[in-house]
Design a protein around this nucleic acid. Structure first.
Length: 467
DNA sequence: GGAACTCGCCAC
DNA sequence: AAACGTGGCGAGTTCC
């Protein structure tokens, strides 16, 4: 088990002040529209009932009933797994993590092309929103205000966690789920919800630890996700503003660069890269899969389904080799020496003053300093903003939460410009002055909700220049 | 009847 | 040779 302790007085102070600042944010809380939650819950319940009824008439459910009788439970993945992979003798696409049974996650079910399974997935999604989020909002609120906890004593990397309810995993990517959940949450009456987040702060921490000049250049001036997409998909160029081609950049980012940084390898990247290719189109209208086929990387059948990926696999292996041994070779060397130093000493030290000891895997050992330090940047800024809000400048505006690299501030309209400018200054100027080991520029972006509009309504907000 | 586990899924 | 980091949480299941 990885153990962390404050190695320096500064590190201790950061935790101490952080807990107090989070305590004030917890007390301040987040306004929740309870009536909306109840309405939406009822609406979802009706929708779930409708789909459940349709499901009852399917062949799959008739078979399921035959086996399980009155014990039939459509939310039991164990039962579903047995029906699909034992009774119907379908070959599972993959097993669960523990290897106990064939997997029944979204990917495994959707590729079987059985309509009943799509209905099960639909039910899963709606139930998730209703029971994990809307229900929790109603359960946890006091007089129309939520008080999510922000913990500093749990994550092994000295990040934070959140609970009751978890403010850090409210849907964001799935537009539908995002709208349903975030429509429930508001800043105070007459206030804006201002959200400011550090851009690519984990990668910037990697720049600082590794001092890889190419990584620094790409982070500050370049676009590594685009570069890698061009290599991976064998493109001549990529326009990230083109709606079809930007999916390929997303593929480079989420299907390769991030997994590689977390310690994954090319074999796991290939299926993800293909997933993004499936929904991408080149500027001239060529579907990305057809393009890959033209390049000889994959083979397609008459229906356009991928039948062979051997060449693509080999290609991604080569791209990975180049990524670590040429492009970011300094980063690569750092990883090796960092790991061997840990193996010799039994601990690692973060630049923020924490020492981590105990048993760590290689990936843990390498990721911990980036994740931990990145969060500590946000934490330092959060503490400073809390201090300005409550002590030095006595704002009406108040910080109300954070999501690892993002801070939410319940902001009075008349203070908006001052708060935005101050946050920009604290995060990007004061912090690197206080921690002089930060030798790459830090950047933030902001979103804003109009007064009395929910979190779901957030829009890009141009921050004032402070430099 | 509760603790501990598995599985799936939400966030960064 | 090995192979994605950190969390919270709901539902189902198994164990005691």
């Amino acid at each position: 088990m990885l153990q962390t302790k404050a190695l320096t007085k500064d590190a201790y102070q950061l935790m101490h002040d952080g807990i107090l600042a989070f305590g004030r944010a917890e007390r301040q809380g987040i306004r929740v529209d309870v009536e909306y939650c109840e309405r939406k819950k009822a609406h979802l319940t009706r929708k779930i009932e409708r789909v459940t009824k349709q499901l009852q008439n399917t062949k799959l459910l008739k078979l399921w009933n035959k086996i399980y009788g009155v014990k039939t439970n459509i939310s039991s993945n164990h039962q579903l797994s047995r029906v699909l992979y034992k009774t119907m003798k379908i070959k599972p696409f993959k097993s669960t993590a523990s290897g106990n049974q064939g997997a029944t996650d979204e990917e495994s079910l959707s590729m079987l092309g059985i309509p009943a399974l799509d209905q099960i997935l639909e039910i899963r999604k709606l139930t998730k929103v209703r029971d994990t989020y809307l229900d929790a909002f109603v359960r946890e609120q006091v007089d129309g205000t939520l008080h999510p906890f922000f913990n500093l004593h749990i994550p092994r990397t000295f990040r934070s966690s959140s609970s009751n309810p978890n403010f850090q995993n409210i849907p964001a990517r799935d537009k539908q789920a995002m709208m349903m959940c975030r429509q429930a949450l508001y800043a105070r009456e007459g206030h804006h919800w201002l959200a400011v987040d550090y851009s690519g702060v984990e990668v910037r921490m990697a720049c600082i630890y590794t001092q890889d000049q190419k990584l620094i250049y790409d982070t500050v001036h370049g676009d590594m996700h685009l570069d890698m997409a061009v290599e991976l998909y064998k493109l001549d160029s990529l326009d990230k503003n083109h709606s079809g081609e930007k999916n390929l950049r997303q593929g480079g980012k989420n299907g390769f660069v991030f997994p590689e940084f977390y310690g994954d390898y090319y074999g796991n990247c290939v299926p993800n890269l293909l997933k993004w290719a499936r929904i991408a189109t080149l500027k001239d209208g060529t579907p990305a899969l057809v393009h890959l086929s033209d390049k000889g990387l994959v083979k397609l059948d008459k229906k356009g389904k991928v039948t062979n990926t051997d060449k693509f696999l080999k290609h991604v292996e080569k791209v990975e080799d180049d990524f670590w041994n040429v492009r970011y070779r300094t980063y690569s060397k750092w990883k090796k020496s960092w790991w061997s130093k840990y193996q010799k000493r039994g601990y690692i030290d973060m630049l923020t003053g924490f020492r981590c000891s105990g048993v760590m895997t290689k990936n843990e050992c390498i990721n911990t300093p980036f994740q931990g330090s990145a969060f500590h940047c946000l934490l330092w800024a959060f503490i400073r903003i809390d201090e300005l809000a409550y002590e030095e400048e006595k704002w009406d505006s108040k910080p109300i939460g954070q999501i690892h690299d993002e801070i939410s501030i319940d902001t009075h309209p008349e203070e908006l410009e001052h708060v935005a400018e101050t946050v920009q200054r604290v995060t990007c100027i004061e912090l690197p002055e206080a921690w002089n080991w930060i030798d790459v520029p830090l950047e933030v972006e902001a979103d804003l909700c109009p007064v009395n509009q929910p979190w779901a309504s957030k829009q890009f907000y141009e921050l004032p220049e402070v430099c």
